[in-house]
Design a protein around this nucleic acid. Structure first.
Lengths: 180, 180
DNA sequence: CTGAATTTTCAGTAATTTGTGAAAATTGTA
DNA sequence: TACAATTTTCACAAATTACTGAAAATTCAG
């Protein structure tokens, strides 16, 4: 599969960013080409478009599947597997946020809980536990938020994000609002 | 500097997580020990606590400075530089969010803008531009949010996060509220 | 059931990232 | 200003991560 210069440059950029996004270069490139192409793609097409080995594509697809970022589909009369990204950008975002939370927060939350169960052995442990407690509470709140987000429609999510600076105002009058 | 078993295990965990957090193992460990220790630490203490070379600590501190995650201070009668983390966990969070946005979103936002300026060369470019536009708008909203967050007091930020599932309800009645 | 098409696995290699010690640069005090 | 203390830099080494081709496993049409 050939790729337009415009897609090419976007793919390269997403490759660079891939590592900062908890993926890696190849995964970033792969997802870019899948997201930017309307038709579902098979492994050979991706391999050709990105000039990487077929086996590398296979491993990348495996990982993208584990992130729930791609959808598998079949094309009548073709035995190959085809992949595409959700057409709704909000769905992608929701998935990304939840999956990152799973990888970046959940394991830590569990470690922090363990530390809180321990008996502090001296003053410095006591201080450490205070900090651990703060981190724990914070991360738990973030977890609640991402769960909430998972259940939100794209429209609602979009409305929430569009609030932007409005959020501050809303917070100020929240109590008034909810107590009525 | 010696380290208690509890801190030790937390440090190791933060090291593991470091890479998932856009830092790396050593940076994660370094920040853990700084955050969990009440007194400011100097480079030699960190080097000893984590069993890593003095030069590695120097490079790590440089990076933590670039993230604005540590505060430099001096202790009277001591020529060494001492470092500590903000005592307010919300301040740390605010900084982390903003710095990650700088690294993870800003460069992409700029690339997306460039792609939108280009004249699409065919139908597939046209489709790509639609997606690019969606990503762009979304990332711009996230940027607005993080800016908003930067200006919020810790109390307000905490209140916002505590909303949790309440956010959905608030969204539902937002218009009513703001139009009054 | 068979076998061709397709996907996955994996050991070895390549590329990238991280860590070190020695030397250079900077700092601050006497 | 001189110099000892401290920090930073950097070339190289070590460790980790990513990529490949070949072989194994799986899938499915006939």
């Amino acid at each position: 599969m050939k790729i337009t210069p415009m897609t090419q440059s976007l793919v390269l950029h997403f490759g660079e960013m891939g590592s900062r996004w908890g993926l890696n270069r190849t995964l970033g490139q792969m997802y870019a080409v899948i997201v930017l192409t309307e038709a579902p793609l098979n492994a050979d097409q991706i391999s050709e478009a990105l000039q990487i080995s077929r086996s590398n594509v296979s491993m990348g697809l495996k990982e993208l599947k584990s992130w729930n970022l791609i959808k598998l589909q079949h094309i009548p009369g073709d035995r190959k597997e085809y992949f595409s990204a959700p057409s709704d950008i909000w769905e992608i975002t929701r998935t990304l946020v939840v999956e990152r939370r799973k990888r970046e927060l959940d394991p830590t939350l569990s470690t922090l809980r363990d530390a809180l169960m321990e008996q502090p052995s001296n003053e410095s442990d006591e201080y450490a536990q205070v900090r651990v407690q703060q981190m724990h509470d914070l991360m738990e709140m973030v977890t609640l938020w991402t769960n909430e987000m998972q259940g939100m429609s794209s429209e609602k999510l979009s409305a929430l994000l569009k609030l932007g600076e409005g959020i501050s105002k809303i917070l100020d009058v929240k109590d008034k609002l909810l107590l009525r």
